[in-house]
């Protein structure tokens, strides 16, 4: 089953977005065992500076169309170019990152191709389906994360899916595919440029939760912005990043880019420390896959204890200062 992967560039760093590498490798694991190709499709004003890296993760070929007019996300233009590439390649599987770009363009293309698109998949695999031979099985949470649905697209091609960044894992070892990039020609039409981008304001993103080995998160139980200092100190003492539940963000204890969960970052650190977080399903969606979870909560019934590996029942305002004291001693 041939796969096409949408390749995305971070417009601020000009480098590949991680999700493009993650999906390339995922596509490789889906297509390669059956001897099929993985083809990347990119459009933008210039290729990502580190495009070569795709070939270390299983890419066979990268099709690209570069044009100054594609510097910003003109939905219709992106749709036209990418759809033309997909039609030319005739893949069975098409994967997009569930980014604000992927989620903008992928539905337009699926609508135009009249095929199925499954959003925010957390697992993808191929298997036999009735008399159709092998098809793509797409698992995704739905219903606010309370159910896990397996979705299939039996009779339409391509089978399209989006996946959020940080969900698919990268391999430990790099592959060594030869670098093959091909320019894709298309008659560009200015009527595709319907929006006028008046100003681009980069967001200052200070946190990189996905890359952290240790994440210390605070929730509503932290109580106030002042107490949140304890969470920061614990994170610093452990060399980790600071995370938060949505309640903590909503109460203004900390900025939104620290949020972990369904509408925040997905993390899978070696150690996740949840302080004053009840462990609602939307929060768990972003941290459940952590290797070890330590929960600090004064409510022994809090659902977070159901997924934690280590727990301590009590007031975080008393526990964390003691932890900090011993951490300093240990180092």
């Amino acid at each position: 089953m041939k796969s096409v992967v949408f390749i995305e560039k971070n417009p601020v760093t000009k480098r590949l977005r991680n999700v493009s590498l993650e999906l390339t490798y995922k596509a490789y694991t889906l297509s390669h065992p059956q001897g099929s190709e993985v083809v990347g499709v990119f459009c933008g004003e210039a290729l990502p500076e580190d495009s070569d890296r795709l070939f270390q993760f299983g890419m066979d070929r990268l099709l690209y169309h570069t044009d100054q007019r594609l510097a910003q996300l003109h939905s219709l233009a992106y749709k036209q170019v990418l759809e033309a590439m997909i039609r030319a390649e005739k893949p069975e599987i098409v994967l997009f990152g569930a980014t604000h770009t992927g989620r903008d363009v992928a539905p337009l293309i699926a609508s135009s191709l009249k095929t199925g698109l499954t959003a925010d998949c957390t697992q993808l695999y191929t298997d036999e389906y009735k008399d159709r031979g092998k098809i793509l099985y797409q698992m995704r949470p739905a219903f606010g994360g309370n159910i896990l649905a397996t979705i299939v697209t039996p009779d339409h091609r391509p089978m399209m899916a989006t996946v959020r960044e940080g969900v698919m894992l990268l391999p430990e070892e790099h592959l060594q595919n030869p670098v093959r990039m091909e320019e894709f020609a298309i008659d560009f039409n200015d009527i595709w440029l319907k929006s006028e981008f008046m100003e681009i304001i980069p967001k200052v993103k200070k946190v990189d939760l996905a890359a952290a080995n240790i994440v210390v998160s605070g929730g509503a139980g932290v109580g106030n912005r002042e107490n949140f200092r304890l969470i920061r100190e614990l994170a610093r003492a452990l060399g980790g990043e600071v995370g938060a539940s949505r309640a903590a963000v909503d109460f203004g204890f900390i900025e939104k880019d620290h949020q972990v969960g369904q509408t925040g970052s997905v993390v899978r650190p070696k150690l996740y420390i949840a302080c004053g977080i009840s462990g609602q399903i939307q929060h768990r969606a972003g941290m459940e896959e952590s290797q070890k979870i330590l929960a600090i909560n004064k409510d022994p019934e809090a659902p977070i204890f159901n997924i934690a590996h280590m727990g301590i029942i009590g007031d975080l305002n008393e526990i964390i200062p003691v932890m900090l004291r011993y951490l300093k001693e240990e180092v």
């Binding site: 417009p11 996300l73 980014t99 008046m198 100003e199 967001k203």
Partner: peptide, 9 residues
């Protein structure tokens, strides 16, 4: 736009 805010007419 995730990493940036786009002002669009």
């Amino acid at each position: 736009g995730e990493v940036q805010t786009e002002v669009i007419k």
